[in-house]
């Protein structure tokens, strides 16, 4: 693998994500709204803690161990991802099946891509959950790339995005086993693996990916990690408040998350506690590794400044009063691209 000259990255702010799945639908409508791809959600938001999609993906292996050796991985099934249920629309609406005909999903649902929406963990009133948008991490060391015997997966030279060449793919699915994030799907119609393409047709034209540009929560920052003027660089490398998911998987993921700060936990009497956060630190560490501690420390310290009425450059970055600044230099308006 040749090193790409630059690396694109994304920062997803979990304090701004509201789980609305506009990113998910943006992606579905752009790329996967066709036969064979119905069950694919290259971008998905799940409620965590939870088993996610595919169900229990964090226990499915893949990636690299501490020594950098590939770990064996499980090949996720459609049932584990959650199949795309079909519905008996015509029967209910138009076919005269009587006054009790019922619209039903088929097959009977047992799991879906967002099965655990708004459930979470803990015990009332100290339950906790937040939204975790997930997509291909466009890793610096992609386990999928190394697992593919046909070299069908490559890292794009100019921006480091991880792309699956659908012409070369022979449907072996080793990549699906190897990816520790389980973000590659199998298309049974075309007998190939398919995954997030980091919206290359858009990015090639200076337009941010659909999941970024269409996010109404303004939760996503996008750009080159080495762009010193860019928000991604500042949040990841300067302020270090954005941390990758499961860095221990060893693949060098390039999607970063600003960790969530939930409302105060309540004590046995129902009073807000200041000594422990609502989301256990261990849980956040289990997702984001030990770096999350420092990220939260910086985040909270800067947050305290604005709470005192002072200005904070970090808070201004996270607010990003001008939405365009979150995307630069990929802030071109697709509607203004000459066709």
């Amino acid at each position: 693998m040749t090193e790409p000259s630059r690396q694109l990255g994304m920062v997803i702010d979990l304090n701004k994500c509201i789980g609305c799945q506009t990113c998910t639908i943006a992606c579905k409508q752009l790329w996967t709204n066709e036969e064979g791809m119905e069950y694919m959600w290259w971008n998905i938001v799940t409620t965590v803690p939870g088993k996610g999609t595919p169900r229990g993906w964090e226990q499915m292996g893949g990636g690299f161990d501490e020594k950098g050796q590939a770990r064996t991985g499980h090949l996720p099934t459609v049932e584990e991802f959650g199949p795309a249920w079909n519905f008996n629309y015509d029967e209910v609406f138009f076919e005269g099946k009587g006054p009790t005909a019922q619209l039903k999903p088929s097959p009977e649902p047992t799991w879906g891509p967002n099965w655990e929406e708004d459930q979470g963990a803990g015990e009332y009133p100290n339950s906790y959950y937040f939204y975790l948008p997930r997509l291909c991490n466009h890793c610096t060391r992609p386990a999928c790339l190394e697992a593919c015997p046909r070299q069908a997966i490559f890292k794009k030279e100019e921006n480091g995005s991880v792309i699956l060449n659908e012409d070369k793919c022979n449907g072996y699915r080793f990549c699906m086993e190897a990816c520790p994030y389980k973000r590659i799907y199998f298309n049974p119609k075309r007998f190939i693996g398919q995954k997030c393409i980091l919206c290359f047709p858009r990015v090639d034209k200076g337009v941010a990916p659909g999941c970024v540009r269409m996010c109404p929560g303004r939760a996503r920052h996008f750009g080159y990690l080495d762009d010193e003027g860019g928000q991604v660089h500042k949040l990841v490398n300067v302020w270090k408040v954005a941390v990758p998911l499961h860095p221990e998987y060893g693949t060098g993921p390039n999607i970063y998350y600003v960790p969530p700060v939930l409302p105060a936990a309540l004590d046995a009497e129902g009073r807000p506690r200041t000594d422990v956060p609502r989301v256990p630190k261990e849980y956040l560490r289990s997702l984001f590794g030990p770096a999350v501690d420092e990220a939260l420390k910086v985040l909270n310290a800067e947050w305290d400044r604005t709470r005192r009425g002072e200005r904070s450059e970090l808070m201004d970055l996270l607010i990003s009063r001008k939405w365009h600044d979150m995307l630069r230099p990929f802030d071109h308006n697709p509607a203004q691209i000459a066709t």
Partner: peptide
Amino acid sequence: PDFNPRGCQKGACYSDHMYAPS
């Protein structure tokens, strides 16, 4: 902060829903 980009997941797939079996 400005208002961009206004919308939601429901609006983002009306183009699918308008051709729906319903």
